[in-house]
Design a protein around this nucleic acid. Structure first.
Lengths: 332, 332
DNA sequence: CATTGGTCTGCAAACGTGTGCAAAGGAGAG
DNA sequence: CTCTCCTTTGCACACGTTTGCAGACCAATG
């Protein structure tokens, strides 16, 4: 049987409201009474009931986090950042995964709403995009990570990687190494991240006065299997000497396909990824990539949510990527 | 303002208890009343309050999941399995990470206790081991994944990879390929997983009547940096022709160190990992390893918890590993 | 001594929901 | 028409906590 505040009150010979105040270190309660109640509570193994407390305070100290899938190393690091800051500030994390499955997505939004969380962080772009109306109805502050539409709302805020900047950075690196025919092996066409990286790619080409050839752009899946599409470029003339990949997963898939075809990286072809997932450094050759400050993004998102909960005004944040040169690109 | 069951009651011209029953599809309520109330509730955008419900039903439909770190691909997959089965059965997941940090560990256990979760799954062996007394006090069913001590308790159950079997499987594979001098590049010495895999290694040696040489056993960290210790074996005589690594992370680290030293895998040295993390297939050479059915473990753990919540008796489960032969081992 | 003021504690309401029990209403049987 | 029984609904309490307000007690002041 759980020991409640009333049990402590009875044992200490006071009313339950006095116990409540004493345990909250309310200065209204006389110092010695307070100490005594603390002792009694500890001895009896009293543990406050967050549910009951949440009902009256209308604060649950829980934030909902909706992600596509926790297996994605990118997502996992973001969640880690969130969880860390949340924990340090007395918040707990309710995790929901959507898997890009409409049923699950809807369920998550519903579950979050029923759970009375104090705030929500969404790191599933589809959910952020498709269910914004529903999300708004939850009536709590919301922070979207890398979502598609950056519309303004007094409740919904966002924090995003500057993918155009990153895409430009990546392409620029290849150009600086002397490459002139550069392909873009993209991700899901409907993802804003994909479009933005493509934009950055085009910007870098334009800045270097290089022509843009649509045949040098492919879309993919964003997963390892999306790398197989790299073969399309091999038959193109002129053959590209470098490829900017939508993300590291795609680059790793491309690496694998190229190895099977006998194309050597970076000797025959330079390859640059995006994300800097943990294993980017351990594939062969180690992947040159654009590092995304993932756990920092998670931390920033949670910090933003804390600010919102504290009633502060916050602006939308854009986080720049950083070039990490390893072994998959070389001068030509 | 949130619309409560009372608001719906007023709008529908009935008492709040009738609404409560109607929405629960309680057959006591006349069919047409029920329908009408459903309509009114939907129109008003009523959403049940899980907090209030939890207070009275004493069930929160939330399970706590404590892990070391979500960044570990192994853990991530387990969590995915848990989350999936939980979601399908109307449970939500409260995530906590311990990071092997005593303060955080204690906080997690405390937080879980206050949160009134219906059950707990712990995939952080340290927590499972050190805080068993505290965990038991939570007073809800608990499932430990890969924990150290498999002691019996009517509340605490466990599900584990059979590491001795896996270690034996790995070593046996090397032996079958003709290797006679085989080293074990281990993990953290205090981890039961490490000890069990070592046991399996020794068993396989014994079964093949090969001598056991303690100098051919090193301990490490279980992370990529733990692979560097592989150099110790290179100066041993006779030099081992094969190494069984505690896990894939360690194997990947070893691979990297060996590459730096000019030792070719598998030509000069065979290497086998453990876990079959997603990237094991994409390193060079692709890693031969022992596959652990990770998301299945998560699913089984959650299923076990559901059974416990339903009052069923469950036994402890041991899950066997499976050999996956790729390119890092070869016949001698 | 009466009054005031300050310190501390208890009473009671509230948060939103579920549920045992009583009661209202209607139908059917005698 | 009366009685019984069944269906349907409402009343009231409970879950464990926080908090506004009133009140008790004591000391100090006039």
């Amino acid at each position: 049987m759980r020991v409640s505040i009333k049990d402590v009150a009875k044992a200490a010979g006071v009313s339950h409201s006095t116990v409540s105040r004493a345990l909250a270190d309310n200065p209204l309660i006389a110092a010695e009474t307070r100490k005594r109640i603390h002792r009694v509570a500890r001895r009896m193994g009293y543990v406050p009931d967050a549910i009951a407390r949440g009902l009256v305070t209308r604060r649950t100290q829980v934030i909902g986090v909706i992600v596509t899938t926790i297996e994605d190393p990118f997502v996992a690091e973001v969640v880690r950042g969130i969880e860390q800051v949340a924990g340090d500030n007395g918040y707990r994390v309710l995790l929901g995964t959507s898997h890009n499955d409409p049923t699950r997505e809807m369920n998550q939004v519903k579950a979050i709403r029923e759970s009375r969380v104090d705030g929500v962080i969404v790191a599933a772009s589809r959910v952020g995009a498709l269910y914004q109306a529903h999300l708004k109805e939850i009536g709590v502050p919301i922070v979207l990570i890398n979502n598609q539409n950056r519309q303004k709302s007094h409740r919904i805020h966002s924090i995003a990687i500057d993918d155009a900047q990153g895409g430009q950075l990546a392409t620029q690196h290849l150009i600086e190494q002397g490459h002139r025919v550069i392909a873009y092996l993209g991700g899901p066409p409907d993802h804003a991240a994909n479009r933005d990286r493509l934009t950055g790619y085009q910007r870098a080409l334009a800045a270097a006065k290089l022509p843009f050839d649509p045949a040098l752009v492919q879309s993919g899946t964003g997963r390892v299997d999306g790398g197989a599409a790299v073969v399309q470029f091999l038959s193109h003339t002129p053959t590209p000497t470098a490829i900017f990949c939508y993300n590291d997963m795609t680059a790793i898939g491309a690496l694998r396909t190229l190895k099977e075809r006998g194309v050597r990286v970076p000797d025959d072809l330079s390859l640059i990824g995006y994300d800097d997932i943990p294993f980017a450094a351990y594939v062969d050759p180690p992947l040159t990539t654009i590092h995304q400050p993932k756990d920092e993004m998670g931390r920033l998102a949670m910090q933003m949510l804390l600010d919102l909960l504290a009633g502060k005004k916050v602006g939308n944040v854009s986080v720049p990527g950083r070039l990490v040169v390893r072994g998959s690109t070389r001068e030509i």
